[in-house]
Design a protein around this nucleic acid. Structure first.
Length: 258
DNA sequence: TTGCATGTTCCGGA
DNA sequence: GTCCGGAACATGCA
């Protein structure tokens, strides 16, 4: 699931539960801990309170008054609030108890996980390779990022060190709604293309963040892409499908000529 | 059984 | 230095 809009949803969950002392951390599967241990995690946060969380791309940054938790949800992670009475889900890997409930980090595939930085400075080091957040970037900055880039548009949009937050679904959705092929070489894009991409990216992110996911509407590519040989919601042409830089890429060869 | 899945990282090669 | 493809990571589903 998690691309920028999903993680923004998780940030909101956490933001609703700042201020209450954390009474304990249960690590049910240490396989999601990255560079830390259950013991270190508990020591670092017990008795402290979550402060205002922030998001950079697909990363959720949760300061607890000194130490900083850094969460990444991979392809299957989530963060949700539960009553302690509710039995844990088999994929609940880490649980923080606070107030009258629990925050649960759930993740089936454990491709990413939970990191702990001792302070903001170290947190920044972990996040240092990320580009600006896709929701925050200005038009000018967007142009600057893409100028000098040589490869395909799809690769550029999903490169987190260039621009943080866009995943496979969002990149394809943006290209499709902007009517530009994801296979186009970035240097071949003209001013009009860049304007369309930026405008479309902003609009799609705004709408997606509202519902905390890329909405699978049938007027969007995301609502149509899962059907094999399905039609383009714009023009009815059979959607094209191919792997581009390691990810399945879906586009319409009629609406998005190469 | 095989291929695929909205993630990142690391490697070799162009 | 950049960029690309492929593999690895771990799990479940069609």
């Amino acid at each position: 699931m998690p691309e920028l809009p999903d993680v923004e949803g998780f940030r909101r969950v956490l933001a609703e539960h700042t201020g209450e002392p954390i009474t304990g951390v249960r690590v049910r599967d240490a396989g999601v801990l990255r560079g830390t241990t259950a013991r270190a995690l508990d020591d670092a946060v017990r008795g402290r309170r979550f402060e205002e969380p922030r998001r950079l791309g697909k990363w959720l940054i949760a300061p607890v008054g000194g130490p900083v938790l850094i969460l990444h949800f991979g392809m299957t992670g989530s963060l949700s609030w539960h009553s302690p009475d509710e039995p844990p889900h088999p994929h609940d890997r880490v649980i923080w108890s606070l107030g009258d409930g629990e925050l649960r980090f759930r993740d089936m595939r454990k491709l990413q996980g939970v990191r702990l930085a001792d302070d903001e400075r170290r947190a920044e080091r972990i996040l240092g390779d990320l580009g600006p957040d896709a929701l925050e970037v200005s038009r000018k900055e967007f142009d600057e990022l893409l100028s000098g880039r040589r490869g395909r548009l799809k690769s550029a949009l999903t490169d987190q060190s260039l621009l943080a937050g866009l995943g496979n679904l969002l990149a394809d959705e943006i290209c499709w709604q902007a009517r530009i092929s994801p296979l186009r070489a970035v240097p071949d894009l003209d001013e009009k293309d860049l304007a369309a991409l930026y405008r479309t990216m902003r609009r799609i992110l705004r709408e997606s963040v509202k519902v905390e996911r890329v909405p699978p509407r049938d007027t969007w590519l995301t609502g149509a892409r899962d059907e094999r040989d399905g039609p383009c919601p714009h023009c009815g042409t059979t959607l094209s499908r191919r792997r581009v830089s390691g990810r399945t890429t879906v586009w319409c060869r009629s609406c998005q000529p190469t």
